[in-house]
């Protein structure tokens, strides 16, 4: 009994470690100053998929990522950890997409790939923190969803039992398949890269990543698995008016740097006199006590 699993993954700028050069003097984001990484919660989702593959022989795990050609790196990272293949959804028509247009494109690609039993993804991506794409993909495909998943407890041909985080607690739900599940960052971390798989897939590339003068061009003829599947707007039969900027109901009106109102601070030392003075002042103003 195997499952067809698609893992949605996004390449994101690492907003957790933002340096002083992350913003340009004009106040826009300097994307080149931030390393591009595998969205952390998508890694947790990949791990849940790989665990099902370990448990149920015949299960296939394929990664679907939308982005520019360099997002092929996401697929390689997944292959190194045990995924069976991947799809890069890339087209200029997708540029400027908000979450709704992104979900539309991803759902078109999933229809094109066909017949998933389980679609997994991270709860949210760290560059937007919206948590919208999972539920929106589910709605577009007419599938049920379970968000904030901690662990897949049980998986049967017709249903899945998962533990999910809710505000102030946990919940166990049973959901029919096929379904969309989004996984929390507190779920099990993803396994590390496997050395053998790294050697095998080191040169795996999407067609868009290939260059004319590649030294290993002949390898791609001998080993078809080194050429990753690339899909564009036409391949997945996507309606252009629902893609990219045109298909995005939300518009960015303006973007500004955060400026905090600096205060006139009183500087104190850790001396007894300073601390005692401060406490007395706070007590006499009824701020404390």
């Amino acid at each position: 009994m195997g499952f067809n699993i698609i893992v949605l993954a996004k390449q994101v700028p690492d907003t957790r470690n933002v340096g002083s050069d992350a913003m340009t003097p004009e106040g826009t984001v300097n994307r080149s100053a931030l390393p591009a990484i595998f969205n952390p919660e998508d890694m947790n989702a990949l791990e849940q998929a790989l665990r099902l593959k370990d448990k149920f022989p015949g299960t296939t795990v394929k990664v679907l990522t939308m982005g520019p050609p360099r997002a092929g790196q996401i697929i390689r990272e997944a292959l190194y950890r045990g995924a069976d293949g991947g799809y890069l959804l890339t087209d200029r028509a997708f540029a400027g997409a908000d979450t709704l247009a992104t979900s539309y494109a991803l759902s078109a690609a999933i229809r094109h790939i066909g017949n998933p039993d389980i679609i997994l993804g991270g709860r949210q991506a760290i560059d937007g923190d919206t948590a919208q794409v999972g539920p929106q993909v589910a709605q577009k495909l007419g599938l049920p969803q379970v968000t904030y998943v901690e662990e897949i407890k049980e998986c049967a041909p017709e249903y899945v039992v998962v533990e999910r985080h809710i505000d102030g607690g946990v919940e166990t739900v049973k959901c029919p398949l096929p379904a969309v599940l989004t996984v929390n960052g507190s779920a099990a971390p993803c396994r590390p890269r496997n050395a053998k798989l790294m050697i095998k897939y080191k040169r795996a590339l999407c067609p868009a990543e290939k260059t004319e003068d590649m030294p290993y061009a002949s390898e791609y003829e001998k080993k078809p698995y080194l050429t990753l599947t690339q899909l564009n707007c036409a391949d997945v039969n996507a309606d252009l008016s629902q893609c990219g900027l045109a298909g995005s109901p939300t518009k960015v009106k303006q973007v500004e740097n955060i400026v905090f109102q600096a205060k006139e601070s009183r500087r104190l030392t850790s001396s007894d006199a300073d601390i005692e003075g401060l406490i007395k002042e706070l007590v006499s103003s009824h701020t404390i006590g």
Binding site: T99, L100, A131, Q132, P135, Q139, H165
Partner: peptide, 23 residues
């Protein structure tokens, strides 16, 4: 913008093709 709202909001916005801004 808690677990319920962040589960429900995107699904409703997708069904109505209306924009949703989180948090």
């Amino acid at each position: 913008a808690d677990v319920v709202g962040r589960d429900l909001g995107p699904r409703v916005s997708s069904a109505l093709t209306s924009g949703l801004t989180a948090d």
